[in-house]
Amino acid sequence: MLLDDNDIQTICLTLKLASITTIILLIIGTLLAWWLTHSKRKWKKIINAIVALPLVLPPSVLGFYLLLAMGPNGFVGKITNALGISPLPFTFSGLVVASVLYSLPFMVQPLNNAFESIGKRPLEVAATLRASPLDAFFSVILPMALPGYLTASILTFAHTVGEFGVVLMIGGNIPGKTRVSSVQIYDHVEALEYAAAHRLALVMVIFSFLVLLALYIWNPKSKKE
């Protein structure tokens, strides 16, 4: 067997985390990207900058603040406490929340671009053809933005798979709960288990390559008509 049970467990956890994060971000990202595309408010530039922050911040900075916020004295911690939910740090839920924030720009930006290039006109056309705004979104905008959704989902998924710093800060390193592949590789290296680290790292390289290859093959924009 190429990978041991622990490795397989971390891979499963990683895929679970990436899937859940992508699904949550499909909903949040759509709403946020739609608002950013069509709002005329001046402070949307501020929101734009905040959404892009995870692109430039060291993951440890993001993780540090999230840890403070989710801790018993942070504002998220106080909310979870009031709701009777156990604190988020060092849980899988905490990891999901952190990943959603960390991968936000990878979902929002491609969707924002897709919505911008579609523009308002198809909505207006749909309205003159009796479609309500919600109907028009699902019957016109969604199919037209499909390449954007594909790009955004793949980038989000792949990026979540690859995160390390935030995971380590928020999730710690609890086997079966918060230990994802990137952390596992780190552990292998720390323990000088280079062969094990190699195997898992190679899986990650192949996975990432395949994802990006799929992205370039499927994206209709790169196809020549």
């Binding site: 309205a127 009796r130 309500s132 199919p143």
Partner: peptide, 20 residues
């Protein structure tokens, strides 16, 4: 009355057919 409830048809300057 919102556009989608008005009994009208509208032809725009460009055709704007739905590409899908």
């Amino acid at each position: 009355l919102p556009t989608n409830k008005r009994p009208l048809g509208y032809v725009f300057q460009e055709a704007h057919l739905f590409p899908h």
